[in-house]
Design a binder for these strands. Structure first.
Lengths: 241, 241
DNA sequence: CAGTGGTCTAGACCACCTC
DNA sequence: AGGTGGTCTAGACCACTGT
């Protein structure tokens, strides 16, 4: 069958809605029909079926396993991250019981990092990249940058400490007094997709944070990439008066 | 050419990177080569080229116009929305000088709305749906729900007032004292894609808000869908001690 | 080995825009 | 009429998983 009305609902979207209905009652882990079979059922092509499946995977309702099949995913256990006190480590260590150190090295700041840390271009920065996991599943990648010149031997110190903030406090007497954060949607690059077991191009939540010391100088710039199908962020507001 | 190494960088992603390079120096509005021509250039299929183009469009770097071509988009003028004082209207009216009323009616609450407003299932709610624009371009859709029983004649009052909060204050003596907000990524449904001039399935930012009156009862539940390629949200934090 | 998802191809027809 | 993007098709080969 050829095309269709423009501005009508795309065919893949109708397939998606039908699939959504079909999997509504199924338990996590339940296998759904193979893509080729679904294409026959819906009298469409595998490409169209895959487009529908991809959106459902991106929304966290299905999981694909190469060579095995497509399965109903765990209930969208969207974790809620409170944005209230990012200056403590408590939260991170609470939500992510385990984390793997991916990178700990000294690099030359690219233009964005040097801008955010108010350094000259190419200044040396310590880069700390961690993979955060919950119940063994990779969920977020956090990359923090701090000026290397201000914190000599930081790399060494970090090997003995659990957290960056702890090291800053104990070895350099610095407490972070202020922070700005932004949240936006980005598409997952290949390397991060592999580490997080997601698909390349899947929408992710990017939380960027800049933290300041008491003297008002920026001390840390961090980028945290969260799986968009697993997380949401939360804030609370109270009226001043 | 057939396939490729699994876990290698997908071909479309290489095309995307090359295109990114090519458009780096071009001004907004500049037309790029047609899809069929790009497919020849990169010695690949149109499908693959379109996959790369789609990601660039989603990131806000390109714009597609049916029948005309593909063009370099305006610089990613990502607007930053402060999350600090959502209880005032000031912000909304400041950032979005114009807004169109899409819907103003009374409906039966679905399960999510009744849950959030602590109503019984199917209770009647006033639904206010607005399209927010900046410089004539549609940027967000905001849908607010309030219990109909608590605010009689609200529909009528809203026709005379600029804002919901203003009407609540002046006609019912209610000021909102508290609010919770969550931010997550969702995929754009067809109707909203049409209204916002985006693509179906494009990643969007969904901000959900529940506001409480002084007596602690939930008064408003609102869902705001922002174009993911145009917005980011920002918060500031200050250490208590 | 057969079956699954992962990627890519070549080409079709449509709707839209411009000339 | 011709070119553009929008959607869909049928089918190919690959990598991976199970038997």
């Amino acid at each position: 069958m050829p095309a269709h009305d423009t501005h009508a609902e795309p065919k893949y979207y109708q397939v998606k809605k039908k699939l959504l209905n079909d999997i509504a009652g199924l338990k996590p882990g339940h296998a759904i029909a193979p893509e080729r079979e679904l294409a026959e059922q819906f009298r469409t092509s595998r490409t169209t079926v895959r487009q529908a499946l991809t959106e459902l995977v991106v929304q966290g309702l299905l999981e694909r396993a190469q060579g095995r099949g497509t399965f109903v995913a765990n209930p969208k256990t969207t974790q809620t991250l409170q944005l209230n006190h990012p200056l403590d480590d408590i939260q991170a260590n609470d939500i992510f019981p385990t984390s793997t150190l991916l990178t700990l090295d000294i690099e030359h700041a690219d233009s964005e990092v040097s801008l955010r840390l108010e350094l000259r271009g190419g200044a040396r920065v310590v880069r700390i990249e961690k993979l955060r996991l919950t119940s063994g599943e990779p969920m977020a990648i956090e990359t923090a940058y701090v000026p290397a010149s201000r914190f000599p031997y930081l790399k060494r110190h970090l090997k003995q400490h659990k957290s960056l903030y702890c090291a800053l406090r104990e070895h350099y007497g610095i407490t972070l007094s202020q922070a700005e954060e932004t949240i936006e949607t980005v598409l997952c690059p290949p390397r991060e997709a592999m580490l997080l077991h997601t698909e390349v191009g899947a929408p992710m939540l990017l939380l960027s944070r800049r933290s300041y010391a008491d003297d008002g100088t920026p001390v840390e710039f961090a980028r945290s990439l969260y799986r968009g199908d697993r997380y949401k962020f939360a804030t609370k507001h109270t009226r001043p008066n």
